[in-house]
Design a protein around this nucleic acid. Structure first.
Lengths: 140, 140
DNA sequence: GCTTGCCCTGACGTGCGCGTGAACCTCTAG
DNA sequence: CTAGAGGTTCACGCGCACGTCAGGGCAAGC
């Protein structure tokens, strides 16, 4: 198939596919007229890339998964490198979540004190806008 | 005080302070020789900016807080705009946390199936590296 | 006069995943 | 024959918070 069809099937853009090629993640055969020619395996590769990127992997970090695909024929995360990749990414995600939870606590505290001490610019209504009971962070 | 001292006191760089000025967040008097001259109020303003940025506010979004400082003399979040800012940011943080939690679930599932089905490149030891019991996400 | 340390104003570099033309070629249908 | 849809490479733009030169001036000690 050609680049437009692959882009549609993978739910992305032709520009992205060319970008993957520039980064060495995707190699296309060429037709006689110079057009890129992709196979079903390439579609799998692109889906793999998109899936990893959607979970926060950088493009370069998707390389082991793609190479594993090429080697393993069909399944993606059958390689040892993939396991390391998953673990590292999970650790990053956990760190980020922890950071955001702390940040949320600080923000909620600030909102609280702001609501108590707010004088406003001018008249402040008895019920301050946005100072209602506030739900907790997701996952807590 | 001059820019170097302010940067040290606020724990940031002179470049950052000039950047804040470019963005209209910080206005400095000038000495006869053209050097920037800052006051204690400016230090408070910079601390406010840094605190907001540390909690994920964009530079432009710190403006209401800084203006509130200038108006309110001393306290930061006494203005109505601040409350709106806190609420919006908390909503963003919650959305981001939710996104990361979903991502983490997918990653953990992937890691699990990878650990079960891993063939590896070559010999795979009985205990796969990185396939130990894995802790849950923070805050769950 | 020389060094040293601080300050000044531009203005480009960084990281990253593409978006968005420009200018051109290729195939197909009417 | 011609339009139109799709392909090609090249290369700049973007967002954002600064880092990092480059090329100067100012003040103080020796």
């Amino acid at each position: 198939m050609r680049i437009g069809e692959l882009a549609r099937l993978a739910g992305t853009s032709t520009r992205a596919l060319r970008h993957y090629e520039e980064r060495g993640l995707l190699a296309a055969r060429r037709l006689a007229n110079g057009y890129r020619d992709y196979s079903a395996a390439d579609l799998r590769a692109v889906e793999e890339i998109r899936a990893r990127v959607a979970d926060g992997f950088a493009l370069a970090e998707t390389r082991p998964f793609v190479e594993c695909l090429r080697a393993g024929e069909g399944t993606s995360d059958a390689c040892v490198d993939s396991i390391e990749g998953y673990r590292r990414r999970i650790a990053q995600v956990d760190a980020e979540i922890a950071r955001l939870l702390h940040s949320r606590e600080r923000l909620a505290a600030q909102l609280d004190t702001a609501c108590r001490g707010a004088r406003g610019q001018g008249d402040v209504p008895p019920a301050l806008p946005g100072c209602v009971l506030f739900p907790a962070a997701p996952g807590t």
